[in-house]
Simulated assay, not measured.
Amino acid sequence: MVSFADDHPSRLRRSVLSVPAINVRALEKTHGLACDAVIFDLEDSVFPDKKAEARENLRRFFAETPLVGREAVIRVNEIGSDYFADDMAAVIECRPDAVLLPKVDGPDVVRVVADLLAEADASESLRIWAMIETPLGVLNAAQIAASGRTAGGRLDSFVVGLNDLRKATGVVPESGRTYLVPFLMQVILAARAYGLDAIDSVSNDFRDLEAFGRECLQGRSMGFDGKMLIHPAQIEGANRHFGFSPEAVAEARMIVSAFADPATAALNVINVDGRMIERLHLDEAEKLLAKIAIIEQREGKLS
């Protein structure tokens, strides 16, 4: 079966930094950072009486100094809030790569926002990211992921929000996230079933880089594509832990080269030095190399 997200190009999302839209200095600093994506936040990090100012900051930023070589994402306030309509107007004007919807409990939210974007003739490349950060969001993760099929192809990624989920469930914040792992894996499973990316939750203590590294390793092992960050100090660790070793890159190139041989054109399984390699490994290798190409292209633009 063809994945719903197959039409979306490969994305690099190892490090996804959240920046308060109210902080002009922080916005300016994003140009020199090596993160893969920036979430410009209009929600939790902006006081209610500063929402309008934050939106104006983003309008100026996107008009005058847009990001180069990284994804730009705007996190809006919750649908039904007093700020949502104005936030979406700013999104349509700024034309980021994606809009991040907080506290998505079910599929209707994704469909409503997709309809709003379509009515505004927003580019089809403007995607939707959904934050899964409530008990209902976790329980309905598969339905939310499936809603992409009826949301104009815009739904592209899940982002886990554990702070709100801990608060709602009463799970104690402890090292290892033991009792949160079932929730995290449910989100991963739903995302993968419908071809979406999945971004792990923030690590709250940006000074404890060892604990952050352990969370990155755990998230990578669970299958997350990257991690949402709250401080630039976390970028290097996220890029490293969710990145690709030279050995993995070399193997990917070997697999692509092996299947490029005309003699293997009609084969689903080939033998390379005593190893059986399937075409599913070819798919994985091509995706890895596409991400390497993104890194190389971005470094060229930023140099």
Rank of each mutant, 00 (worst) to 15 (best):
167 K>V: 09
167 K>C: 06
168 A>R: 05
168 A>W: 01
169 T>I: 08
169 T>M: 09
169 T>V: 08
169 T>G: 10
170 G>I: 08
171 V>R: 02
171 V>C: 01
171 V>I: 15
171 V>Y: 02
171 V>D: 00
172 V>I: 14
173 P>C: 07
173 P>M: 09
174 E>D: 06
174 E>S: 10
175 S>W: 10
175 S>M: 10
175 S>A: 14
176 G>P: 00
176 G>V: 09
176 G>C: 08
176 G>E: 05
176 G>K: 10
179 Y>H: 13
180 L>P: 00
181 V>Y: 07
181 V>T: 15
182 P>N: 11
182 P>K: 12
182 P>Y: 10
183 F>V: 02
183 F>P: 00
184 L>Q: 13
185 M>Y: 06
185 M>E: 15
186 Q>S: 13
186 Q>K: 13
187 V>W: 01
188 I>P: 01
188 I>N: 03
188 I>F: 08
189 L>V: 12
189 L>E: 09
190 A>V: 05
190 A>D: 09
190 A>N: 08
192 R>Q: 15
192 R>A: 04
192 R>M: 02
193 A>L: 11
193 A>T: 11
193 A>D: 10
194 Y>A: 11
195 G>E: 06
195 G>F: 02
195 G>H: 03
195 G>R: 05
196 L>N: 05
196 L>K: 10
197 D>N: 11
197 D>A: 12
197 D>R: 13
198 A>F: 01
198 A>G: 01
199 I>N: 02
199 I>D: 04
200 D>Y: 12
201 S>T: 15
201 S>C: 10
201 S>Y: 04
201 S>D: 12
202 V>R: 00
202 V>Q: 02
202 V>S: 07
202 V>Y: 00
203 S>Q: 11
203 S>T: 13
204 N>K: 01
205 D>Y: 02
205 D>K: 03
206 F>D: 08
206 F>R: 03
206 F>A: 13
206 F>K: 03
207 R>L: 10
208 D>F: 03
208 D>T: 03
209 L>Q: 13
209 L>H: 05
209 L>W: 04
210 E>G: 02
210 E>V: 13
211 A>P: 00
211 A>R: 12
212 F>N: 02
212 F>M: 13
212 F>W: 03
212 F>P: 00
213 G>W: 03
213 G>C: 09
213 G>S: 14
213 G>A: 13
214 R>G: 01
214 R>K: 12
214 R>L: 11
214 R>A: 12
214 R>S: 06
214 R>C: 02
215 E>A: 13
215 E>I: 04
215 E>Q: 15
215 E>K: 06
216 C>A: 13
216 C>G: 05
216 C>N: 11
216 C>V: 04
216 C>W: 02
216 C>R: 02
217 L>E: 15
217 L>K: 14
217 L>Q: 14
218 Q>R: 14
219 G>I: 04
220 R>K: 15
220 R>N: 12
221 S>P: 00
221 S>A: 15
221 S>G: 13
222 M>R: 04
222 M>I: 07
222 M>W: 15
223 G>C: 11
223 G>Q: 11
224 F>V: 03
224 F>P: 01
225 D>T: 10
225 D>E: 12
225 D>L: 09
225 D>S: 14
226 G>F: 08
226 G>M: 10
226 G>V: 11
227 K>E: 05
228 M>Q: 14
228 M>T: 12
228 M>D: 02
229 L>K: 08
229 L>Q: 04
229 L>Y: 04
229 L>V: 09
230 I>D: 00
